[in-house]
Design a protein around this nucleic acid. Sequence first.
RNA 1: GCUGGUGUGGCGGAAUGGCAGACGCAGCAGACUCAAAAUCUGCCGAGGGCAACCUUGUGUGGGUUCAAGUCCCACCACCAGCACCA
Length: 844
Amino acid sequence: MAVPYNHHEVEQKWQKIWDDEQAFKVSEDYSKPKYYALVEFPYPSGAGLHVGHPRPYTALDIVARKRRMQGYNVLYPMGFDAFGLPTENYAIKNHIHPRIVTRNNVARFKEQLHALGYSFDWDREVNTTDEEYYKWTQWIFLKLFKAGLAYKSEMPINWCTSCKVGLANEEVVNGVCERCGSAVVRKVKSQWMLKITEYADRLIQDLDGVDYVERVKVSQKNWIGKSQGAEVDFTISGKEDKLRIYTTRPDTLFGATYMVVSPEHPLIDKYKEEIGNYEQLCAYREQAAKKSDFERTELAKDKTGVQIRGLTATNPVNGKEIPIWISDYVLMTYGTGAIMAVPAHDERDWEFAKKFGLPIIEVVAGSPVSVQEQVFTDVATGTLVNSEFLNGLSVADAKERIIAFLEEKGIGTSKTNFKLRDWVFSRQRYWGEPIPIVNCEKCGYVPMDENELPLTLPEVESYEPTDNGESPLAAMTEWVNTTCPCCGGPARRETDTMPQWAGSSWYFLRYMDPHNKEALASQEALKYWMPVDWYNGGMEHTTLHLLYSRFWHKFLYDQGVVPCPEPYQKRTSHGMILGLNPHSFVNQTQEEQKRLVEQYGSEKAARAALVEEFGEMAEHPIVKMSKSLGNVVNPDEIVEEYGADTLRTYEMFIGAFDMSAAWSEDGVKGCRRFLERVWKLQDILVEGEDYSADLETRMHQTIKKVSGDYENLKYNTAIAAMMALINDMNKKGAVTKGEYRTLLTLLNPVAPHITEELWQICGFAGKIYQTSWPEYEEAKTVEATVEIAMQIGGKMRGTFSIPQDLDKEQVIAQAKELLGDKLTGTIVKEIYVPGRLVNIVVKP
RNA sequence: GCUGGUGUGGCGGAAUGGCAGACGCAGCAGACUCAAAAUCUGCCGAGGGCAACCUUGUGUGGGUUCAAGUCCCACCACCAGCACCA
């Protein structure tokens, strides 16, 4: 009998052996085929590793381990994205330097990751807060600055009232701060901006050449929001000036009955003398400015606006004079900040026209209902009317025709617009990369000399942000006051720091050559390792990190720093690990449910009572894990009680990798039992390197299934296949050494410790991590005899077994014989699907 | 509202158009045990039948097909992202 499976001993033993042997050290031999597997590096929070972290890490650890066994030189690195607000806030609260907080947190994370047995090459660890790392983050910023892609701009930014920091649009969720949930207001500040918009088109186009899961591609495209239309100049009646608008429906130009400009549009101030109701407009503008983004979108469903008195516009195609309004449904930040309103064919314009009694003219016919009653926006079926030379054309043809006309007359051009805005790159915080720019009174903003990098963070007394919106660095006069690199005169350093997304925008490059002092990575390393072959990360990073890092990479490509235009060849996304909601009715024990029903009279009433007490959330049985609900699972405890191999197996078995899944401790136990059964197979081990006759097909099938599933994110069915195999082995009561060896190898990427231990116990040569991946023969995955389903008219009527190679007539004949009396009526069709079924279609 | 995704036993979930429910959990019964736990064996969608079996069943309603969880059309519910982007 085997000794009992002791996961503590086994896991500690093998983790030490791997460390001592440097088992997963990346080879510098660039002649070998390479494979670069990447997971998003974590933010080392004070809470330690969450049970959600191991899911993607284990998935790609499986791929990495398998690739090594297949002979690849594998780069599977790990690091820490350690700059950021939570650390800084913790430091402020507890009066500890953020560097120390970071160091402690990183140490804890490393320990936890180590205990899970990942095959990371820790010699390549990166940390965004290391001077030797952020030196290159600053270096890239200087390149951006010199290329004119980093600029300073006075602009209204999203200001988090609690974090006291400016946020990028992407960091504002439903009008509140993504991190702390506090209200976000508009505040005008001078900010560093990055011109990501310059890359908008390429960021969409190049998605065609990469293998990203569809939903990631779609969200990137939506976020960038490309639209094709035209800009048209309307004359302001009696003036030289033109009012330029953007529209995606130039075909409806003859239907424009009024115009709308955004409240911030410069037109208003320019003609304030002639505007009869300037005061009224200003009042409206002020009101609009006070609204947060949240109010503007969520609460202001009802259209508001004011007509500009004293100014009108002229439609350039028919000379019609139309009024101009201001309204906050037109945004200054998109297009030209002005629109022509075609109420018949645009929903918002229609609502506005109805509210203010403005005329609605149909120019696209085809709606079953009058446009006075209902807006008609269908572009596929309509035909142009009331539009002179466009009459009778389809919408698509009319667009083409009108744009040609506008361009010929010089009153308009075709134009592409994007929703994407430039990236707000400054943060009024301490714990980030200093921006290596100096502000000189004479020379303006001057970049630091590259050779002087890194510009390190100075020691400050207080990390507290100031209420006037300045970074804590501003108080460091010694550090701030410097000399201009250009003229040598007195100058001030930039006191804002970079956002957290800076360091994570290029970290995958540093892993290739992490100790390089001359460059962010050597050209040889970049040429060999790029692009990342497989990058997995969370959906929440699709419009932030993923887009930002693709932008930086494209820029570095244009600069000749990196050899390829796209950083990631393949991108997948894992689902979240959720927890049970302890307040939900369905998660109560049966007794408790019964008690609640009795107490409140019915299940409905009981549920309502729970909602009353705990809020809407009580209706959702499966929710995000949170401290306040007390349903957070600590991975350390799982590793302690069941072992890392069990945790790894469970997280892979929990469900489809890309879907969210609810944690279940019973499920963990099931996976532990599975490993115990694998352990106990050593008791029925028999001599023999070959597969036994009755398991040979199963072995080949399992190798095929597991190998394929590991490549296709189907870890759950790979494990199910191995479970099924050991069930068969146990039924048979014997396993040959050859069979066991294969099973252990297949399971090794998922459960590396226990499989190495068993390998050694069985006296197999070497270590599993040094062996090669098992092969299968396609011919041997086919059963000699197959079970055939019998159907009459598509209804199941039993099964029978035949040898694989029997021909159609014989199979059908046999089926008919077995069906006997059940087969009545005239046979109209006989179908045989080889190896699967016989279907006999009869007419009564 | 738009975009994408998901609806299958008590639960997590499997099924190149071809035997729905693999695998796991929970449950039930049995073996072992003084007993419990652990372990092992068997059963396990619903309805009917002593039984062999029969009927029914993958969110709803239609359709295509010899055959539909899977394909097509229309809807419903839930989840995620976007949301006055002209």
